[in-house]
Design a protein around this nucleic acid. Structure first.
Lengths: 344, 344
DNA sequence: AGTTAGCACTCATATATGGTGAGTGCTAAC
DNA sequence: GTTAGCACTCACCATATATGAGTGCTAACT
């Protein structure tokens, strides 16, 4: 059975009412507040059909109708209008996402914070997965008699370093030689590739003399590479959940917050999401991780290469149009910021 | 009126019962479960006196007694026994707080996470304030034609860096000269002191030629110094609050989580706390920030110099003895870890 | 055939009612 | 000073009743 034009109008009205009030929508209020020029009885008949088709549900016999996930999906895919952000809001976003000092992580944190502030939802952002990032330059620098700093620069411009206490003496020439050798060996390799290289053996062949030094440094080098693969997760607006009536229930709030507390699983979910603006609704999400929630994510880019994500999570009843526009406007801004400044 | 020996015994029993059950304690169950060899009626008389002295309160006429903040203070200061951690727990703590790769921040994060796991409370940790940390070594390194890395090593062993895109050409000699000059100017200065130095003018005198380069780099240098002063706050076990019956109420849970959400204020509170193991109970804490909560914090040291803090926050009804022991054992471990490895 | 008015029915929510029990406070006796 | 006894309080729980929003169905209307 196909959905009729009038049914579509009614469904849209129900979704719109429910999104703004959170209360099941009854036939009478529908015919009053929207100019559907038919009587409540007719609307009831149509609603009954819509329910049969799976677009509506019924919390109990004497309650109004509530849109199902399927209805939201229809709405998001076809019925939703593009929401134009007010200029004022655009200005706020642009202003707050500027990044004068190359402080990439801080900017992302700010973005998450701003997003939750504007949407009144819980927001999160992940930094890019760097496994596609290539190593560019490795340097081991002297600090004092027993300390050196290991510095790794990747082609995206990210610099990572670690201070190491050595338990053997070194001289600057050796460090320079080691730096050169490491750069030569790893340059152009992605981090993932680099992790598979058995460097100790590689080095031994041509620089036996330094093997002691290398043995000291290499485990830390590899560990640092591993750390570079870590994705950081930022969240904000956790307590916004309490302002949403549906979650004004200790158990739901608890489930929600516990789900977010499990950062590892959440990170996995985020990392594995497709790129671009993605909306997943209710049980489209893995049920055990986040029941009855919708998630909207979009991707931002650093210098057009590394891809991170930012988004919100909230009840299936959310203002999909507004939130989507906010997120997309923010990612546009982030892309510009991270292009001009050349990423960190 | 002074508190009698017997009253003290009764008070202790009430506190102990209330801490473990969370229910107001009645006279009958007291005389049954503790060997106070007097009848419930006598206990009632004593309780009435204790209430008059401000050690107990009464939720309503027909309920048992509940210890007041004043009672907890008395308990913590004088009556509390030292709690010996089970060997097993000690082993777990020691094992999980080892830090093989100098990953200071990760270790602190782990510590907070472990602390909330063991105590079932909400835990937090702040990294040391570094304003007493001295600068040791500053280096500006070439990366590619337009990028340099600014590296700052402080005497505590911490290394900080930032990648900078320059909008003027440079040559390696200039960088080396600048590095030398910066190191000469700032070495031995604390970060706070360093921030007050008008370096541009200092430089101009003896290295005019490089002023363009310096103008490019110095704002970022100062910004980086500012960032080094930032204190990081880690939290864990946020959702533990839901397992505490007193907070099984949407409003209290909300207040609690919103208070923790305000990281700036929380950080301020933590930073301004005295060093050593500090217990603050209920309204001893700033009322608007955390009503009806107790807080236990202790300090850890990096190389005996920089001082950070770790602690828990929870209901006034908490196992002060156990929690204190856990925190103190953890800070001991952290101190060792950060001494052996020499800090980061 | 589609639309509508009318009406019985359902059920969550709110409110009132009474019973239960833990615990107190007081009095009088030991 | 201690204790038994007893009336009293009050949160808590279960049950009963009222309310009202909203449905589903039927029969009449266009």
């Amino acid at each position: 059975m196909d959905i009729s034009e009038r049914q579509l109008r009614i469904l849209q009205a129900i979704i719109s009412d429910f999104i703004s009030t959170g209360e099941p929508v009854g036939s009478r209020s529908l015919s009053k507040n929207h100019d559907i020029n038919v009587s409540p009885a007719t609307i009831r008949n149509e609603m009954s059909d819509l329910e049969e088709m799976g677009y509506l549900t019924h919390p109990h016999t004497s309650a109004g109708r509530v849109p199902s996930d399927k209805a939201y999906r229809l709405y998001v895919d076809g019925m939703m209008q593009k929401y134009e952000l007010p200029e004022e809001e655009k200005k706020i976003i642009s202003a707050r996402l500027s990044d004068d000092f190359n402080e990439f992580e801080k900017t992302i944190k700010k973005a998450a914070s701003l997003l939750s502030e504007i949407t009144n939802l819980t927001s999160f952002a992940i930094t890019p997965t760097q496994n596609a990032d290539m190593l560019k330059y490795i340097n081991v620098l002297p600090v004092d008699e027993e300390t050196v700093v290991l510095m790794i620069v990747s082609s995206s411009g990210r610099v990572t370093n670690t201070a190491l206490k050595l338990n053997c003496p070194y001289n600057e020439e050796n460090l320079a030689l080691l730096s050169k050798n490491l750069t030569y060996t790893f340059k152009g390799k992605t981090i993932s590739e680099a992790l598979t290289i058995d460097i100790i053996n590689n080095l031994q062949s041509d620089m036996q003399a330094m093997s002691k030094l290398a043995e000291n440094i290499m485990p830390n080098f590899m560990k640092t590479l591993e750390n570079m693969l870590d994705v950081n997760l930022y969240m904000d607006g956790l307590t916004n959940i309490f302002n949403i009536p549906e979650f004004n229930d200790i158990d739901r709030a608890k489930t929600f917050l516990e789900m977010l507390n499990n950062k590892e699983d959440l990170t996995k979910v985020l990392v594995s999401r497709e790129n671009g603006t993605i909306i997943t609704i209710g049980n489209e999400n893995s049920k055990d991780i986040m029941p009855d929630c919708s998630m909207i994510t979009a991707t931002y880019e650093i210098d057009g290469k590394l891809i991170g994500k930012i988004g919100v999570i909230g009840p299936t009843r959310m203002k999909y149009d507004e939130v989507t526009s906010v997120i997309e406007y923010m990612t546009e801004n982030l892309n510009n910021t991270f292009k001009l400044s050349g990423g960190e």
